[in-house]
Simulated scan of single mutants.
Amino acid sequence: MPIQKVTKQEVVTQALLLFKKRGYHRTSMADLAAACGLLKGSFYHYFSSKEALMKEVLEAVHSYFKAKVFVIAYDESFAPRERLEKMLAKQIKVACATEGGCLMGNMAIETALVTDEFRPVMRAFFDEYLKALAHVYSGKYDALKARQLAEQAMVEYEGAWIMVKLTDSSHYLQDVLERAMLRFDADEKQ
């Protein structure tokens, strides 16, 4: 296979797609190099290890969601309900755009108990995700109730991906969105 010139960002993008599809432990450095059109030895020019690459992939996903998804929660030009719907719909769209589902959820399940170095990056992502959801809910509920609803929406979303993978049916994701909206509409501000 000829060596191709690729950017570090292209390597991260290809790795993201492979890690989403195959998982961290089932993806080898040879798989990653092949996906980028590189020889395995050339791959180390970009990243010293698979762990270093995975950490950068996780940070890239976090940066993307912070700039393109979580930011929706803070856009005061929309009503809180509309922000919630837009944010969750965008999150579902992004995760469904490529095979494999939610990378952060996948990696949390696969690596949290065996690879401590990824935990801070994943934790920061989920903390920011929870904060964004709680901010939206705080437009209608007190801080405690907003946090509880945010946690429930986040946990349901991640759990829905398990069912999507088991059944090949994406209706679970739409159900999460619908239930989040129903919960938002359920009560008056407390």
Rank of each mutant, 00 (worst) to 15 (best):
F47E: 09
K50D: 10
L177D: 03
D127K: 09
K131N: 09
A35I: 07
L103H: 02
M154G: 06
K165I: 01
H171E: 11
R147G: 02
E151T: 10
R147V: 04
A124G: 05
L133G: 00
S170I: 11
V176W: 00
P120K: 12
A146R: 04
G41L: 10
V136A: 06
L130E: 13
E76I: 13
K66F: 10
V57Y: 03
I72T: 12
R81Y: 13
G37N: 07
Q152C: 10
P2Q: 12
F118R: 02
C36N: 12
G23T: 09
T7E: 08
D185N: 13
F126Q: 02
L130R: 14
R147S: 04
K68S: 15
D127N: 14
K90H: 06
R22T: 08
E151M: 11
Y44L: 14
R81T: 07
H45P: 06
D142F: 07
E51A: 14
L144C: 06
R22V: 05
F78K: 15
S42E: 13
A30C: 04
D31H: 07
A73Y: 11
A146P: 04
K40H: 12
L18T: 05
F70W: 15
K189C: 10
A33L: 10
T7R: 13
D185R: 08
P2K: 14
R147P: 00
M29T: 15
E188F: 08
W161T: 02
A160F: 00
E128L: 09
A34F: 12
G105S: 02
Q9L: 14
F125M: 09
S48Y: 08
Y24A: 08
F70E: 01
K21T: 13
S42N: 15
L103G: 01
E117W: 11
V11N: 06
